[in-house]
């Protein structure tokens, strides 16, 4: 088990690193999907089927495709001649470090907050569904509203462009 875990973890990390370090942006996007797939496998390794498959369905099936589309539609996917570092790399570094610190803090804190469990709890899809429409129905609705607003916004942006072209 632990060997498989390390293998998948190495794959995920390699994918993530390649996504940051490769020069060709499309290659970066593809490497990112490797990282997503690794994460999905990690979820599956923890017996969290729903999370794992949702990860593949949403991140590989939709987000990665979206990223790739965005790259293709906005600018050339050719390799950049100058380095991959942008001019504002320092600001980026600070933000990334900040996010990482917050996440790390949250993870470390939660270890104390939750009771220690020897085995992962068995969560079926039904449980997840019940939790989503029961206890967490308000966050779910808020997210749904947000996404609807975003979709309408996207449609309006597209419509505007069409009218201007006429």
């Amino acid at each position: 088990m632990s060997f498989v875990f390390y293998l998948i973890a190495a794959l995920t990390l390699a994918g993530g690193l390649a996504a940051v370090l490769l020069r060709n942006t499309v290659h970066c996007a593809l490497a990112l999907t490797v990282a997503f797939a690794g994460l999905a496998l990690l979820f599956l390794g923890l017996d969290a089927q729903f999370a794992g498959f949702a990860q593949i369905l949403i991140y590989i099936g939709a987000v990665a495709i979206l990223v790739v589309f965005a790259i293709l539609l906005t600018r050339s996917s050719e390799t950049m001649q100058e380095g991959v570092f942008s001019k504002s790399w320092f600001a980026g570094l600070v933000i990334a470090a900040g996010v990482f610190a917050v996440l790390g803090w949250a993870v470390l804190e939660s270890a104390h907050a939750l009771p220690f469990e020897t085995a992962a709890p068995r969560v079926t899809v039904r449980d997840i569904g019940n939790a989503l429409v029961g206890r967490y129905v308000l966050p779910l609705e808020i997210v749904a509203l947000l996404l609807t607003a975003a979709t309408i916004g996207a449609v309006i942006v597209a419509l505007h462009e069409k009218e201007r072209a006429r």
């Binding site: 499309v26 593809l30 089927q49 498959f53 369905l57 099936g61 293709l72």
Partner: peptide, 25 residues
């Protein structure tokens, strides 16, 4: 026999899109 078999099926179906893009690009 998976608890989330249908989801698995669609997850795999979604992955084919990426290969189509890879081939074309």
């Amino acid at each position: 026999d998976m608890d989330a078999g249908l989801l698995f099926f669609f997850a795999m179906g979604a992955s084919t899109e990426l290969s189509v893009f890879m081939a074309g690009w």
